[in-house]
């Protein structure tokens, strides 16, 4: 079927969201201090990652921040070869799901610096890091 003619849109929309983080501010200050954190309900003991400021089981705000030890086991991973437009400058990257010793699964990049064979079950460390653009994130590193 013919692809032409097409009217090219003259109205361009740029989307850039403002995402509130007031209720989980300690997560981001933690990253700056070299810590990756979740929240834990003081009533039922449930650990939340991504962190929540309120326990939806207990319906209370009786929460505390806990710093993860960082020790993790690789659950699964993939190398993203075709990246979204906004990640086009990154080249190929490895996304991993790691199970922390605290029993929580975390998704993040697996840092390829010094990474050799990637194998399910291998030991990793989850660490915060400052990206070259200046913001803080967290990644897995091979142990």
């Amino acid at each position: 079927m013919p692809d032409e003619p097409i009217l090219e849109d003259r109205r361009i929309l740029e989307l850039r969201y403002r995402m509130p983080i007031l209720q989980i501010r300690e997560f981001f200050t933690g990253l700056e201090e070299g810590k990756v954190r979740g929240t834990k309900c003081r009533d039922c003991g449930k650990i939340y990652f991504p962190p929540q400021s309120e326990c939806s089981s207990c319906m209370t705000k009786n929460m505390e921040w806990i710093d993860f030890g960082g020790d993790a086991t690789l659950e699964t991973f993939t190398t993203v070869e075709v990246a979204p437009t906004s990640f086009a400058a990154e080249g190929k990257y490895v996304v991993a799901v790691g199970k922390l010793d605290e029993g929580i699964n975390v998704l993040s990049w697996l840092n390829l610096n010094g990474t050799k064979d990637i194998k399910i079950g291998m030991k990793m460390k989850l660490k915060s890091l400052r990206k070259k653009e200046g913001y803080y994130s967290y990644e897995f590193f091979q142990e």
Binding site: M19, V95, W109
Partner: peptide, 13 residues
């Protein structure tokens, strides 16, 4: 936001 997941990426996991 930080990890650039894609739809094939999710199923690839």
């Amino acid at each position: 936001e930080n990890f650039g997941m894609t739809f094939p990426g999710y199923y690839a996991l």
